[in-house]
Protein backbone atom coordinates (compact mmCIF):
# COMPACT_ATOMS: atom_id res chain seq x y z
CA UNK A 1 0.00 0.00 0.00
CA UNK A 2 1.41 3.39 -0.82
CA UNK A 3 1.66 6.28 1.58
CA UNK A 4 -1.32 8.23 0.25
CA UNK A 5 -3.62 5.26 0.85
CA UNK A 6 -2.17 4.75 4.33
CA UNK A 7 -2.70 8.44 5.09
CA UNK A 8 -6.33 8.06 4.07
CA UNK A 9 -6.63 5.02 6.33
CA UNK A 10 -5.13 6.94 9.25
CA UNK A 11 -7.55 9.83 8.73
CA UNK A 12 -10.53 7.49 8.66
CA UNK A 13 -9.39 5.60 11.75
CA UNK A 14 -8.78 8.90 13.56
CA UNK A 15 -12.18 10.29 12.61
CA UNK A 16 -13.87 7.13 13.83
CA UNK A 17 -11.99 7.11 17.13
CA UNK A 18 -12.63 10.79 17.81
CA UNK A 19 -16.22 10.61 16.62
CA UNK A 20 -17.02 7.70 18.91
CA UNK A 21 -15.22 9.42 21.76
CA UNK A 22 -12.89 6.48 22.28
CA UNK A 23 -9.90 8.78 22.56
CA UNK A 24 -9.39 12.43 23.44
CA UNK A 25 -6.65 13.06 20.95
CA UNK A 26 -5.05 11.42 17.96
CA UNK A 27 -1.35 12.11 17.71
CA UNK A 28 -0.10 11.90 14.15
CA UNK A 29 1.70 13.88 11.53
CA UNK A 30 0.56 16.79 9.39
CA UNK A 31 2.05 18.08 6.20
CA UNK A 32 4.73 20.64 6.86
CA UNK A 33 4.80 24.13 5.40
CA UNK A 34 8.30 23.45 4.15
CA UNK A 35 8.88 20.43 1.90
CA UNK A 36 10.18 17.27 3.58
CA UNK A 37 9.31 18.47 7.07
CA UNK A 38 6.11 16.86 8.24
CA UNK A 39 5.46 17.75 11.82
CA UNK A 40 3.69 16.17 14.81
CA UNK A 41 0.03 17.03 14.87
CA UNK A 42 -2.61 16.69 17.57
CA UNK A 43 -6.14 16.11 16.32
CA UNK A 44 -8.81 16.72 18.96
CA UNK A 45 -11.87 16.73 16.70
CA UNK A 46 -12.92 14.69 13.65
CA UNK A 47 -12.49 17.86 11.56
CA UNK A 48 -8.93 18.28 12.71
CA UNK A 49 -8.28 14.66 11.82
CA UNK A 50 -8.54 15.72 8.17
CA UNK A 51 -5.10 17.30 8.51
CA UNK A 52 -3.37 14.04 9.42
CA UNK A 53 -1.01 12.60 6.88
CA UNK A 54 1.53 9.87 6.35
CA UNK A 55 4.67 10.10 4.27
CA UNK A 56 8.34 9.36 4.19
CA UNK A 57 9.13 12.59 5.99
CA UNK A 58 7.66 11.75 9.39
CA UNK A 59 10.95 11.96 11.20
CA UNK A 60 9.76 12.90 14.69
CA UNK A 61 9.08 10.22 17.23
CA UNK A 62 5.49 10.54 18.43
CA UNK A 63 6.03 8.37 21.50
CA UNK A 64 7.52 11.54 23.00
CA UNK A 65 4.08 13.14 23.25
CA UNK A 66 2.48 10.17 24.94
CA UNK A 67 4.68 10.49 28.02
CA UNK A 68 2.64 11.21 31.15
CA UNK A 69 -0.14 12.61 28.99
CA UNK A 70 -3.48 12.65 30.79
CA UNK A 71 -6.54 11.13 29.12
CA UNK A 72 -6.87 8.61 26.36
CA UNK A 73 -4.89 8.99 23.20
CA UNK A 74 -4.27 7.30 19.90
CA UNK A 75 -0.78 7.38 18.46
CA UNK A 76 0.23 6.73 14.88
CA UNK A 77 3.13 4.35 15.26
CA UNK A 78 5.58 2.74 12.89
CA UNK A 79 8.11 0.17 14.12
CA UNK A 80 10.39 2.43 16.14
CA UNK A 81 7.60 4.53 17.67
CA UNK A 82 5.76 1.41 18.77
CA UNK A 83 8.97 0.07 20.32
CA UNK A 84 9.33 3.32 22.24
CA UNK A 85 5.71 3.09 23.35
CA UNK A 86 6.37 -0.42 24.63
CA UNK A 87 9.42 0.92 26.45
CA UNK A 88 7.36 3.71 28.00
CA UNK A 89 4.66 1.26 29.10
CA UNK A 90 7.37 -0.89 30.68
CA UNK A 91 8.82 2.15 32.42
CA UNK A 92 5.36 3.15 33.72
CA UNK A 93 5.26 6.42 31.83
CA UNK A 94 2.28 5.47 29.70
CA UNK A 95 -0.71 3.34 30.64
CA UNK A 96 -1.43 0.69 28.04
CA UNK A 97 -5.18 0.98 28.61
CA UNK A 98 -5.07 4.70 27.80
CA UNK A 99 -3.18 4.06 24.63
CA UNK A 100 -4.61 3.18 21.26
CA UNK A 101 -1.94 2.36 18.72
CA UNK A 102 -2.63 3.00 15.04
CA UNK A 103 0.09 0.82 13.57
CA UNK A 104 1.76 1.45 10.25
CA UNK A 105 4.58 -0.28 8.43
CA UNK A 106 7.40 2.23 8.07
CA UNK A 107 8.48 2.95 4.50
CA UNK A 108 11.86 4.20 5.73
CA UNK A 109 12.06 7.90 6.39
CA UNK A 110 13.87 10.30 4.10
CA UNK A 111 16.81 12.35 5.29
CA UNK A 112 16.12 15.84 4.00
CA UNK A 113 19.80 16.73 4.17
CA UNK A 114 20.66 13.94 1.78
CA UNK A 115 18.03 15.15 -0.67
CA UNK A 116 19.25 18.72 -0.40
CA UNK A 117 22.83 17.56 -0.92
CA UNK A 118 21.83 16.12 -4.30
CA UNK A 119 20.68 19.56 -5.40
CA UNK A 120 23.32 21.94 -4.07
CA UNK A 121 22.37 25.58 -4.15
CA UNK A 122 18.90 24.88 -5.50
CA UNK A 123 15.64 25.47 -3.70
CA UNK A 124 13.39 22.45 -3.43
CA UNK A 125 9.76 23.49 -3.45
CA UNK A 126 8.00 20.15 -3.45
CA UNK A 127 8.78 16.50 -3.02
CA UNK A 128 6.33 13.86 -4.10
CA UNK A 129 6.49 10.19 -3.25
CA UNK A 130 5.66 7.66 -5.91
CA UNK A 131 6.29 4.12 -4.76
CA UNK A 132 9.99 3.68 -4.16
CA UNK A 133 10.89 6.92 -5.83
CA UNK A 134 10.79 10.56 -4.87
CA UNK A 135 10.07 13.26 -7.39
CA UNK A 136 11.97 16.32 -6.29
CA UNK A 137 10.64 19.52 -7.76
CA UNK A 138 12.17 22.95 -7.63
CA UNK A 139 12.36 26.09 -9.68
CA UNK A 140 12.96 24.83 -13.19
CA UNK A 141 13.65 21.18 -12.43
CA UNK A 142 11.90 17.96 -11.50
CA UNK A 143 13.98 14.87 -10.94
CA UNK A 144 13.44 11.33 -9.79
CA UNK A 145 15.48 10.07 -6.84
CA UNK A 146 15.42 6.53 -5.51
CA UNK A 147 14.21 6.42 -1.91
CA UNK A 148 16.96 3.96 -0.97
CA UNK A 149 19.55 6.58 -1.86
CA UNK A 150 18.24 9.26 0.48
CA UNK A 151 16.89 7.26 3.40
CA UNK A 152 17.98 8.10 6.92
CA UNK A 153 20.98 6.12 8.10
CA UNK A 154 19.04 4.49 10.94
CA UNK A 155 16.29 3.34 8.59
CA UNK A 156 18.82 1.28 6.60
CA UNK A 157 19.69 -0.72 9.67
CA UNK A 158 16.14 -0.95 11.00
CA UNK A 159 15.16 -4.37 12.25
CA UNK A 160 11.53 -3.69 13.09
CA UNK A 161 9.60 -1.72 10.51
CA UNK A 162 6.29 -3.23 11.56
CA UNK A 163 4.75 -2.03 14.80
CA UNK A 164 5.34 -4.28 17.80
CA UNK A 165 1.97 -3.47 19.32
CA UNK A 166 -1.02 -2.18 17.43
CA UNK A 167 -4.74 -1.97 18.10
CA UNK A 168 -5.32 -1.37 14.45
CA UNK A 169 -2.92 -1.99 11.60
CA UNK A 170 -3.26 0.21 8.57
CA UNK A 171 -1.88 -0.98 5.26
CA UNK A 172 -0.93 -4.41 6.55
CA UNK A 173 2.47 -5.69 7.55
CA UNK A 174 5.45 -5.21 5.30
CA UNK A 175 9.05 -6.38 5.31
CA UNK A 176 10.67 -6.11 8.72
CA UNK A 177 14.02 -4.74 7.65
CA UNK A 178 15.79 -2.69 5.01
CA UNK A 179 18.71 -5.06 5.07
CA UNK A 180 21.37 -2.90 6.74
CA UNK A 181 23.62 -4.35 9.41
CA UNK A 182 23.10 -2.80 12.82
CA UNK A 183 26.47 -3.99 14.07
CA UNK A 184 28.31 -2.03 11.44
CA UNK A 185 27.27 1.41 12.71
CA UNK A 186 29.87 1.40 15.45
CA UNK A 187 32.42 -0.63 13.50
CA UNK A 188 34.41 2.20 11.86
CA UNK A 189 35.51 3.48 15.24
CA UNK A 190 35.99 0.14 16.88
CA UNK A 191 38.82 -0.63 14.48
CA UNK A 192 40.75 2.53 15.38
CA UNK A 193 43.30 3.06 18.11
CA UNK A 194 42.53 5.11 21.19
CA UNK A 195 43.91 8.47 20.06
CA UNK A 196 42.38 8.16 16.59
CA UNK A 197 39.03 7.45 18.19
CA UNK A 198 39.36 10.54 20.30
CA UNK A 199 40.23 12.62 17.23
CA UNK A 200 37.26 11.18 15.33
CA UNK A 201 34.99 11.76 18.28
CA UNK A 202 36.07 15.39 18.54
CA UNK A 203 35.67 15.84 14.80
CA UNK A 204 32.15 14.39 14.82
CA UNK A 205 30.91 16.45 17.73
CA UNK A 206 32.77 19.73 17.20
CA UNK A 207 29.74 21.38 15.57
CA UNK A 208 27.52 20.83 18.58
CA UNK A 209 25.96 24.09 19.70
CA UNK A 210 24.40 22.54 22.80
CA UNK A 211 20.83 23.36 21.80
CA UNK A 212 19.63 20.05 23.30
CA UNK A 213 17.34 19.43 20.33
CA UNK A 214 18.44 15.78 20.40
CA UNK A 215 17.35 15.50 24.00
CA UNK A 216 14.04 17.25 23.39
CA UNK A 217 13.23 15.07 20.39
CA UNK A 218 14.07 11.87 22.23
CA UNK A 219 11.17 9.87 23.69
CA UNK A 220 13.52 8.44 26.32
CA UNK A 221 14.45 11.80 27.82
CA UNK A 222 11.55 12.42 30.15
CA UNK A 223 13.35 13.26 33.41
CA UNK A 224 11.77 16.20 35.18
CA UNK A 225 15.19 17.78 35.51
CA UNK A 226 17.79 16.79 32.99
CA UNK A 227 21.38 16.40 34.20
CA UNK A 228 22.48 19.27 31.94
CA UNK A 229 20.04 21.60 33.65
CA UNK A 230 21.14 20.69 37.14
CA UNK A 231 23.15 23.53 38.56
CA UNK A 232 23.89 22.49 42.11
CA UNK A 233 26.16 20.67 41.59
CA UNK A 234 26.69 21.35 37.94
CA UNK A 235 27.67 18.08 36.29
CA UNK A 236 27.99 19.38 32.81
CA UNK A 237 29.18 22.84 31.79
CA UNK A 238 27.22 25.03 29.43
CA UNK A 239 30.03 25.90 27.06
CA UNK A 240 30.98 24.50 23.67
CA UNK A 241 34.28 23.36 25.11
CA UNK A 242 35.19 19.86 23.97
CA UNK A 243 35.00 18.44 27.47
CA UNK A 244 31.51 19.82 28.05
CA UNK A 245 30.29 18.64 24.67
CA UNK A 246 31.82 15.22 25.29
CA UNK A 247 30.27 15.01 28.75
CA UNK A 248 26.86 15.90 27.40
CA UNK A 249 26.90 13.48 24.51
CA UNK A 250 28.43 10.59 26.40
CA UNK A 251 25.98 10.93 29.27
CA UNK A 252 23.02 11.44 26.99
CA UNK A 253 23.96 8.30 25.10
CA UNK A 254 24.53 6.45 28.35
CA UNK A 255 21.08 7.37 29.64
CA UNK A 256 19.65 5.67 26.57
CA UNK A 257 21.47 2.43 27.35
CA UNK A 258 19.17 -0.53 26.88
CA UNK A 259 16.31 1.77 25.89
CA UNK A 260 17.27 3.34 22.57
CA UNK A 261 15.29 1.91 19.67
CA UNK A 262 17.33 3.70 17.02
CA UNK A 263 14.40 5.81 15.82
CA UNK A 264 16.80 8.48 14.56
CA UNK A 265 14.78 11.39 15.97
CA UNK A 266 17.92 12.86 17.55
CA UNK A 267 19.83 12.97 14.28
CA UNK A 268 16.84 14.34 12.40
CA UNK A 269 16.37 17.08 15.00
CA UNK A 270 20.02 18.12 15.10
CA UNK A 271 20.54 21.46 13.37
CA UNK A 272 24.26 20.75 13.02
CA UNK A 273 23.89 17.32 11.46
CA UNK A 274 25.78 15.49 14.20
CA UNK A 275 25.78 11.71 13.98
CA UNK A 276 25.06 10.82 17.60
CA UNK A 277 23.93 7.35 16.59
CA UNK A 278 27.62 6.43 16.57
CA UNK A 279 27.42 6.51 20.36
CA UNK A 280 23.95 5.12 20.96
CA UNK A 281 24.50 2.24 18.58
CA UNK A 282 27.71 1.26 20.30
CA UNK A 283 25.75 0.94 23.53
CA UNK A 284 22.92 -0.86 21.77
CA UNK A 285 25.43 -3.38 20.44
CA UNK A 286 27.04 -3.82 23.85
CA UNK A 287 23.69 -4.41 25.50
CA UNK A 288 22.83 -6.99 22.86
CA UNK A 289 26.19 -8.73 23.15
CA UNK A 290 26.49 -8.61 26.93
CA UNK A 291 22.91 -9.07 28.07
CA UNK A 292 21.07 -10.28 24.98
CA UNK A 293 18.42 -7.59 25.12
CA UNK A 294 16.71 -5.56 22.43
CA UNK A 295 14.67 -2.64 23.72
CA UNK A 296 10.95 -2.28 23.16
CA UNK A 297 10.24 -5.70 21.73
CA UNK A 298 7.80 -7.01 24.35
CA UNK A 299 5.46 -5.55 26.92
CA UNK A 300 6.48 -6.60 30.39
CA UNK A 301 10.16 -7.07 29.54
CA UNK A 302 12.49 -5.81 32.25
CA UNK A 303 14.95 -3.15 31.06
CA UNK A 304 18.48 -4.59 31.23
CA UNK A 305 19.92 -1.82 33.38
CA UNK A 306 17.41 -2.54 36.14
CA UNK A 307 18.39 -6.18 36.33
CA UNK A 308 21.47 -8.21 37.06
CA UNK A 309 22.52 -11.79 36.79
CA UNK A 310 25.15 -13.43 38.96
CA UNK A 311 27.12 -14.42 35.86
CA UNK A 312 27.20 -11.02 34.14
CA UNK A 313 30.58 -10.41 32.47
CA UNK A 314 33.07 -8.79 34.82
CA UNK A 315 36.55 -9.23 33.36
CA UNK A 316 37.03 -5.45 33.54
CA UNK A 317 36.79 -5.53 37.35
CA UNK A 318 39.98 -6.28 39.22
Amino acid sequence: MDNAAIAKGIREAAKKLLGEGKVDVVIGYAKGTVPMRDYPYFAYTPEEAENLTWSGFCCNNLALYAIRRPGRMAVVAQGCVSRNLVGLVNENQVKRENLYVIGVNSPGMVDRRKVQALFPGQTITEVEEVGDELIVKGVGFAEKVARKKVMRQNCYTCVQRNPVISDELIGGEGPASHGGNLDKVAAPWEKLGSSERWAEFQESFKDCIRCYACRDACPLCYCHVCFVDESQPQWCGKTQDEADVATFHLLRAFHCAGRCTDCGACESACPAGIKMRRLTMKIEKDIRDLYGYQPGMAIGAQPPMTLFKPNDPQDFIK
Binding site: A186, W189, E190, S194, S195, E196, R197, W198, A199, E200, F201, Q202, A246, L250, A253, F254, A257, G258, L279, K282, I283, D286, I287, L290, Y291, P304, M305, T306, L307, F308, D312, P313, Q314, F316, I317
Partner: peptide, 18 residues
Protein backbone atom coordinates in the same frame (compact mmCIF):
# COMPACT_ATOMS: atom_id res chain seq x y z
CA UNK B 1 25.44 -5.77 40.92
CA UNK B 2 23.33 -3.21 39.10
CA UNK B 3 26.41 -1.03 39.12
CA UNK B 4 28.36 -3.78 37.41
CA UNK B 5 26.14 -3.56 34.33
CA UNK B 6 26.34 0.20 34.42
CA UNK B 7 30.12 0.20 34.59
CA UNK B 8 30.50 -2.45 31.89
CA UNK B 9 28.56 -0.30 29.45
CA UNK B 10 30.15 2.96 30.58
CA UNK B 11 33.70 1.69 30.33
CA UNK B 12 33.08 0.35 26.84
CA UNK B 13 31.50 3.64 25.83
CA UNK B 14 34.30 5.83 27.16
CA UNK B 15 36.96 3.71 25.55
CA UNK B 16 34.98 3.69 22.34
CA UNK B 17 34.92 7.47 22.43
CA UNK B 18 38.68 7.52 22.86
Amino acid sequence: MFARRRFAVLKNLLEYAG
